[in-house]
């Protein structure tokens, strides 16, 4: 799969970026630009009735030509996730949904049973479902079978920055599913993103690693390069690992 394509839309960048937790709105927009990402995630929340109008995130992302990917973050049941997805489709005029159904506050791990139920309902309703899921090959295969447009296993818990904790599972998932494979959550620094891509992932979705970096804009740039480098390395094909040395310089015709 040379092109990165989601629901018939081809993207140049394989980095998907979150919009939460930046020091301010300006740094967020600068970081998104530096990352080169074409897809940005948002959450759906209640309008606040205050006299101070907030920034219009939707308008800003749309003006910049970004693909807006709403999430169902904070939902603990399929029912809530389906309602949130429907509200997002109506508000943002998109059928894309980053489906999250969380099973536990502390770990933010997905509730697989609820996730599969919600995915099934939303696919039937015509949504393009991108599910955040465990790094479990069987769950990923089930999500693909349901008709999800991608699978997005976690590298590590959301916001943990622990990197790709189970690269072997990611590799197995890569071999098992045909839909785009995007590592979502767990990336802490550029090398983590590169590893995900070297394993054959089609993309990386991250937020905290950039938003909470000491210099978010610089980290966004680093992530962009890491995703590109990791992808190139995957396509190039790494050499096999060996325990002992193989000299790279000629061994013959040495001076005596």
């Amino acid at each position: 799969m040379q092109e990165f394509k989601i629901a018939d839309q081809t993207y140049t960048s394989r980095l998907l970026i979150g919009t939460a937790g930046y020091p301010n709105f300006h740094i967020m927009t600068e970081s998104i630009a530096a990352s080169g990402a074409e897809i940005a995630t948002v959450s759906m929340r209640r309008v606040k009735f205050t006299n101070t109008p907030g920034e219009n995130l939707f308008a800003l992302l749309r003006e910049r030509g970004m693909t807006i990917l709403p999430n169902t973050a904070g939902c603990f049941t399929a029912k809530d996730a389906v309602l949130t997805a429907n509200l997002a489709r109506e508000a943002l005029d998109t059928s894309l949904i980053k489906l999250e159904v969380i099973g536990d506050e502390e770990t933010q791990f997905p509730d697989v049973e609820q996730l599969l139920n919600a995915a099934e309902t939303l696919v039937k309703d015509g949504f393009t479902v991108l599910p955040y899921c465990n790094d479990d090959p069987i769950t990923c295969r089930k999500l693909e079978d349901i008709g999800c447009a991608a699978v997005m296993p976690l590298g590590a818990p959301i916001g943990s920055g622990m990197g790709i904790r189970n690269p072997y599972n990611i590799q197995i998932i890569r071999n098992l599913v045909q839909v785009p494979l995007i590592v979502d959550a767990g990336v802490g620094t550029a090398s983590d993103a590169a590893i995900a891509m070297e394993l054959g992932c089609d993309g990386v979705l991250l937020n905290t690693a950039v938003a909470k970096a000491h210099r978010p804009v610089l980290m966004a740039e680093a992530m962009k390069k890491a995703v590109e480098a990791g992808r190139a390395a995957f396509l190039a094909g790494r050499i096999p690992r060996k325990l002992y040395a193989t000299a790279s310089s000629p061994q013959a015709d040495m001076i005596e």
């Binding site: 939460a20 930046y22 967020m28 959450s43 209640r46 309008v47």
Partner: peptide
Amino acid sequence: VEIIRAVQGG
């Protein structure tokens, strides 16, 4: 009644 909008999210 719920009135919602997009906010910053991951």
